[in-house]
Design a protein around this nucleic acid. Sequence first.
DNA 1: ACCTGAACACCGTTCAAGT
DNA 2: ACCTGAACACCGTTCAAGT
Lengths: 228, 228
Amino acid sequence: MLKEAGDSREDRVPLSRERVLNCAVAVADGGGLSSLTMRSLAKELGVKPMALYHYFTNKDEILDGIVDLVFGEMELPSAGGHWREEISRRAVSARSVLRRHSWAIVLMESRSRPGPATLRHHDAVLGTLRGAGLSLAMTGHAYALLDAFVYGFAIQEAALPFDRGTAPEVTASIAARFSPEAYPHLVEFATERALQPGYDFGEEFEFGLDVILDVLERMIARGNGDDP
Amino acid sequence: MLKEAGDSREDRVPLSRERVLNCAVAVADGGGLSSLTMRSLAKELGVKPMALYHYFTNKDEILDGIVDLVFGEMELPSAGGHWREEISRRAVSARSVLRRHSWAIVLMESRSRPGPATLRHHDAVLGTLRGAGLSLAMTGHAYALLDAFVYGFAIQEAALPFDRGTAPEVTASIAARFSPEAYPHLVEFATERALQPGYDFGEEFEFGLDVILDVLERMIARGNGDDP
DNA sequence: ACCTGAACACCGTTCAAGT
DNA sequence: ACCTGAACACCGTTCAAGT
């Protein structure tokens, strides 16, 4: 499927945790999470399934690993810059990473052993918010709000039936189930807004992010005080 | 597992789509999505796996069905009341439903055939926002922001390692991996805030929701104008 | 119409072995 | 140390049958 699948030649690179995890991400990117099995992964690596168990105790450990790889792809906010620009850059990056690897969103829900990249990521965001002058309590409020939005937006984007260049027939078959009598507002919104040529759901991200950054800005301007 | 599992008596209620779906929700609630298999579901219903295929063409159709059941559990905003109270009540209800059925969050990402309860739900929310005076474009902004927050918060809650009454040993084993030198802000936040006795992550929901409702209120007060 | 049995091509994983 | 073969208890699903 990727590269040259069936190369079980003698001169191949030996296995390693890193090589397995990178391949696992590629497999999931290509065919979704359901296509990532110990057997498909082994085949892609030119190896027998059991070989993987020499590097990972089970599949769960591989899933933990690729979630951490995904976190590692997100840009960290740097301590040097202005908080708003840094937090914004990180949010935009997180969203685009989750768009590339939309299978990762559902995995994040079930992982309970965060890896080093995940921890470093959270540490950097918390540090930036604290550095901007927010109290611990306000930092918690801000981070929960910000990341709920980022993850939630990623879910919505992944769930979109009419994604990047879906065939019009799919859109039509969905629209056909929308009876204007039963769902008047849904039909109005779909036909006059969401399905209009110019509409791009992705732009809702910038809107929501700006709104949230404005909220944080007011929280920071107000100092460490009580809830607004 | 639930009720009387092994009752394959002659006097049992005949199968139906509704009965299968309700049972499927119960199985997923009890043992997570991975425990919901055609075989486990059939056993719970006191029937052979193949019987299910008389009511559903495949497992995907069952998953579509239970997602719609979950949407059906969420309170709809009523057209009569004040928008803020209605939208707030609906958001609180959606969150608590997703907490009860946290397996549903990941399913929502992959379903592309929304059922009637799902459509009715979206229609009611859109209608409430439109009724409050928002333009179509603003309604789109508002709904994306609101639901990204609701779904994203649900994901965060589901991912919490220290959920409702997790054993302290689990918390400790996670905390042990937090080196204060490597992750100073994370350790600070965990020890001085998140792991404090009084802290309840759920309260971040009310904070975020109020903030978003305030934003909508300003959008509405400003009329149908441009982006803020 | 409603349900079943046997079978197929898959899973993750264990256990004992090869080099 | 690194990889394999055979086997086990699972999956979803097809196909042909029972009542």
